[in-house]
Amino acid sequence: MLEAVKISKSYTPHISNSNVLNGISFKIHSGEVFSILGKNGAGKSTLIKILTTLLKSDSGTVLFNGKDIDNNINAYKKKIGVVFERSDNLYDYLNIRDNLLYFGGLMGMCSKEILSRSETLLKKFDLFEHKEKTIAEYSQGMMQKASIITAMLSKPELLFLDEPTLGLDIISKRKIITEIKKLAGEEGISVILTSHQLDVVEQVSDRVMILSGHRIVFLGSVEELKRRHSQNKYLLRIKKENFPKNGLSFPEISTINENHECFLIELFETEGFDFNKVIMKFMELNIPLEGFSKESSSLEDIMVEYLEEENV
């Protein structure tokens, strides 16, 4: 559906090695949620700007259904909806209905069509009751939903969401996550997402692309990323009175923290790690364990580790 071929971009082309993006290529398939991840300055915003035609790349092409978007720019723009970061997507002195009538008009839609589609979307995103309020009167969550509704108005095939859940409460966040999943699953829309909220990325993404050092360092499913980089973690609890006075120095121990009644010992499952052997060591030293738990790495843990590994 959307294909980026060898995209390079530098804001200071007269300086050598100043590329923000360095010949990156990838494909986004129909109906998938595709997340772009990376540290600040990794090139995510630059890439989104190129894909949404706000910025021109120095070299490379972006193809939509096999056609160069620069040669068919208005046809491409008809197929996309974009929610830019910070909710500055709407006129705050207008209500959502008037915003939709304005932006729908620019998309070439007639008023009847806009109002009918608006009603469906406003109900879907629980904003129908608030349609007469100006955007300035909306909460952050309502603004974000209003921006998504506006981007969805003309039934785009590609929806770009830049930090769609930033600053939202848990309920609004969950609602937006559910809707993103539905858009891709039921309506077949491809969603291109950027977010620093990795729990959101983990819940909605079919595939993730990690940018680092101005290139792609990972492209695949969340499961694949976890399979490659996940580390199991064990957490042991020892009562304070049972903790040895001269401390513990097992090589398997990663960190030791304490709360008001226990010491919390963290162990990572590295190569050759045997949990039973660790338990035996505690038994040999007559240190009773209060309890233990096993946890898998979250996407956030993996990202931190991944980017550290990439030496960026």
Binding site: T52, T53, L54, N74, A75, K77, K78, I80, V82, F84, R86, D88, N89, L90, Y91, D92, F103, L106, M107, G108, T150
Partner: peptide
């Protein structure tokens, strides 16, 4: 200033026409 210029630029109408 308000941030809506990006939204106008991505609409399928040349900005000079708008």
């Amino acid at each position: 200033q308000v941030g809506t210029f990006s939204q106008l630029l991505i609409k399928p109408v040349p900005i000079e026409l708008i």
